[in-house]
Nucleic acid binder design. Structure first.
Length: 759
DNA sequence: CGATACAAGCTTTTT
DNA sequence: GCTTGTATCG
């Protein structure tokens, strides 16, 4: 016990040892949040207040839940694998597998990832003859997910016009299609579980009694449904220990509701609100910058980070003439950091949007600095892996039409659009899956389809008693996927990825505790061995969704869930010591010795799409706050006068966030005010497109007489500072397009407008 | 049925 | 500027 609690500061200790009531922990960046969470669990168990089985710990990412289990294993001499620690989705999957009948799902229900969901929606629109120009599939997906994230079914959604009524109707049809195919999307996992527990009192009471302590990580990221889910799980007695930071709420765009924090405080009658404000990560100037910036937000629970480390170095700010030059500068600074002994993996380059990485990557390649970009394609999302998975899905649940369509003619086996049209007609006519409709197709098409059906059924028969990895290997061969890629020129990588799937299966089997006998648990027997059956007073039999997973689902079903729920690492290039490139969003939760925040320009960061709503800019500011607080020792910020975006050169003003930082913590590397001539940069115009450059230069020379230049900084009485983006006309008729940042783009008559030069 | 051409789109993202 | 998705040709 002494061991467990020593090294905690006052605030942390207070949080860890709170009584068994709901509590809210406001944990600032770098304040030891995960430590408090895991120590709390360990302390509860060690002091005998709860058994490991009485703890439910919920996170958002697999990474976070793994981290929690690892740390907990180090603190306690127990097997954490059996504990209920996981993501919202992972835990719901487990519950639904155990109670699939009550939840109204087939035992082998499968999980759609976002890709699958979108294609399912496209398929629905097509079969319903809906104009996908008028009702874009993507919008329908947002609509459906948005509704589900609020806990709303189609008939709960209010629609006030025909357009929305159509969306609601399609939402309903989409749900029907999923039900027919035995598939659920991510939001459905949560909603189904929520509905299951709302509806089924004995089941609800069972879990409510079981989980006396519920701990939630990153609480600020919960959406409405997750909040309701927690409320339901906790019941009247459960103690919810919520850890979060309202200043780091950056996922409102996908349904996260920071308001859940204050709602929680109220509705869970929180008596203990503890703030963790001691920061162990960043030096003073960096922290001051973060604090000063975030103070500009209005809706905050209120928190100020402090550090014992001194001021440290000032925040370095650099103004580049072009995005190209900004990248160049990053390379130079990185080189000198490495020269001074910095480790490449301890340096991060952050940007607001992915498109910005290209210029930087270019410069890095040219200079030979190894780097790693986060956010690329993930293992289970690769086309060839998805194909292999689709074969496995069909063997486990043949009614999954998405899987069927993905591989029915891949590798090519002569089943074209015409055959499929016949098949789809038959399926629609009888209201059955494509797989089930195959016997209804006559002629040659029917025969070819029939042989595909035999392929799947043969595969299932052949592999039914094999351990999972061997099953995967057989499917790779039988499907013809390996052969297909062998004949393809660039198939080597794909074959390697496919072979990797066998390894992934092996690893999965050993990690999740599916022993060699696991296939014996397939089918209805699975429940009989769980040994956790409960009979309630009303005689309802309940099987507790207890670990190991092997007791509630077959290895194949489990592996397929795993593939959907954990798409795998998204690090592009693994291996050596490399510079870290990522969006600010993906940097959340990470820390680095040195951090570059790049592209700090009005329109980019804060992003233009966010500027319409007030709440939008506040979220951008929180995003900036997250970015700043990633840095331990050194922080750079940069912006550029010109930037290529969507194939066009844009002239941006520096971000408003610079005006919200404490001047005394900053050091401007380039003069704060500089001549804004793009002639000054020999690379920008001349080298790239000689013709274009000549044009704009002659244009510019032509405008000399008006006294204004493209790219020049100006000030307007009403609109404030802006940049001249373009000049049209000449002499007394000259008009200028001026980007006033937060006031937008204006077209002003130069002979009339009262403009001042900003030196 | 497969390969190639052109148009449209384009913040952030985990599960 | 580049990627993605569909339309058309062979």
């Amino acid at each position: 016990m002494q061991n467990l609690l020593h090294n905690l500061n006052q605030e942390q200790l207070a949080a860890v040892t709170l009584p068994a009531q709901s509590a809210l922990i406001l944990a600032g960046a770098g304040s030891g949040k995960t430590r408090v969470l895991t120590t709390r669990i360990a302390w509860l168990i060690q002091t005998g207040q709860v058994s490991p089985a009485g703890v439910l710990a919920v996170t958002f990412t697999n990474k976070a839940s793994k981290e929690m289990m690892t740390r907990l294993s180090a603190m306690l001499p127990i097997n954490t694998r059996g504990m209920w620690i996981g993501t919202f989705h992972g835990l719901c999957n487990r519950l639904l597998r155990a109670h699939y009948r009550d939840a109204g799902l087939p035992q082998t229900f499968q999980i759609l990832d976002s890709q699958d969901q979108l294609s399912a929606i496209k398929r629905l629109l097509k079969s319903m003859n809906v104009d996908d120009e008028k009702y874009p599939p993507r919008n329908l997906m947002y609509f459906i997910n948005g509704a589900k994230d609020q806990g709303l079914r189609a008939n709960d959604v209010e629609a006030n016009d025909d357009y929305n009524r159509k969306f609601v109707e399609l939402y309903d049809l989409y749900d029907q299609q999923c039900q027919r195919e035995g598939v659920v999307d991510f939001a459905e996992l949560l909603l189904r579980t929520y509905e299951l527990l709302s509806r089924n009192q004995p089941l609800r009471e069972h879990y409510q009694a079981r989980f006396q302590h519920i701990l939630v990580d990153e609480f600020q990221d919960t959406n409405d449904l997750q909040y309701k889910w927690l409320k339901l799980m906790a019941g009247q007695r459960g103690a919810v220990f919520a850890v979060g930071d309202d200043d780091q709420s950056i996922y409102a765009f996908r349904g996260a509701n920071v308001g859940n924090m204050s709602a929680f405080e109220r509705e869970f009658r929180v008596e203990n609100l503890i703030k963790l404000e001691q920061n162990y990560r960043s030096h003073g100037h960096i922290l001051d910058s973060a604090n000063t910036l975030i103070a500009n937000n209005s809706k905050r629970l209120g928190k100020n980070l402090r550090t014992d480390a001194g001021h440290g170095e000032p925040v370095r700010i650099y103004e580049a003439t072009s995005d190209l030059q900004e990248a160049q500068w990053i390379v130079e600074e990185t080189k000198s950091l490495i020269n001074d002994g910095a480790s490449r993996s301890e340096i991060a380059v952050l940007y607001r949007s992915n498109a910005q990485s290209r210029v930087i990557e270019h410069a890095l390649v040219a200079s030979g600095i190894p780097y790693r970009v986060y956010g690329g394609q993930r293992y289970f999302e690769r086309a060839e892996v998805k194909h292999a998975i689709a074969y496995l899905q069909l063997m486990d649940n043949p009614h999954n039409d998405s899987a069927f369509l993905r591989v029915v003619n891949f590798p090519a086996r002569g089943i074209g659009a015409r055959s499929l049209e016949q098949l789809q007609d038959a399926a629609k006519q009888y209201g059955i899956s494509l797989y089930a409709a195959v016997p209804y197709v006559a002629g040659k098409a029917g025969a070819t389809l029939g042989s595909f059906l035999k392929l799947i059924e043969g595969g299932r028969f052949e592999t039914q008693h094999l351990p999972l990895p061997e099953m995967v290997q057989v499917v790779l061969d039988l499907s013809g996927l390996l052969k297909h890629y062998q004949t393809e020129k660039e198939g080597a990588d794909r074959i390697e990825n496919l072979e990797q799937l066998v390894n992934a299966a092996t690893l999965f089997v050993s990690e999740e505790g599916f022993g060699i006998d696991a296939p014996a648990l397939l089918g209805p027997k699975a429940q009989a061995v769980s040994g956790a059956a409960i009979t309630t007073a009303d005689g309802i039999e309940i099987f507790d969704a207890d670990a190991p997973l092997a007791t509630v689902m077959s290895p194949l079903s489990a592996f397929l869930s795993h593939a959907s729920l954990e798409a795998g690492n998204n690090q592009a290039q693994a291996g050596e010591e490399a510079l870290q490139l990522m969006t600010v969003h993906s940097a959340k939760g990470l820390e680095f010795d040195a951090v570059f925040i790049t592209g700090l320009e009005e329109g980019l960061f804060p992003h233009e799409n966010s500027q319409k709503e007030d709440a939008g800019v506040e979220e951008e500011r929180r995003l900036m706050y997250v970015a700043i607080t990633r840095a331990k020792k050194r922080l750079y910020m940069s912006f550029s006068q010109t930037r290529m975006l969507h194939g066009q050169t844009r002239y941006n003003m520096r971000s408003r966030f610079f005006d919200e930082l404490p001047e005394e913590a900053l050091k401007w590397l380039s003069p704060k005010v500089q001549q804004h001539s793009w002639f000054a940069n020999p690379k920008s115009a001349w080298d790239e497109a000689p013709e274009k450059a000549a044009n704009s230069i002659s244009k510019n020379f032509g405008k000399r007489d008006i006294g204004w230049r493209i790219g020049e900084n100006v000030a307007h009485q009403k609109f404030g500072e802006g940049v001249i983006v373009n000049i049209e006309g000449s002499g007394g008729n000259a008009r200028a397009h001026i980007n006033f940042g937060r006031h937008g783009m204006k077209l002003l008559d130069l002979s009339v407008a009262k403009l001042e030069k900003v030196a």
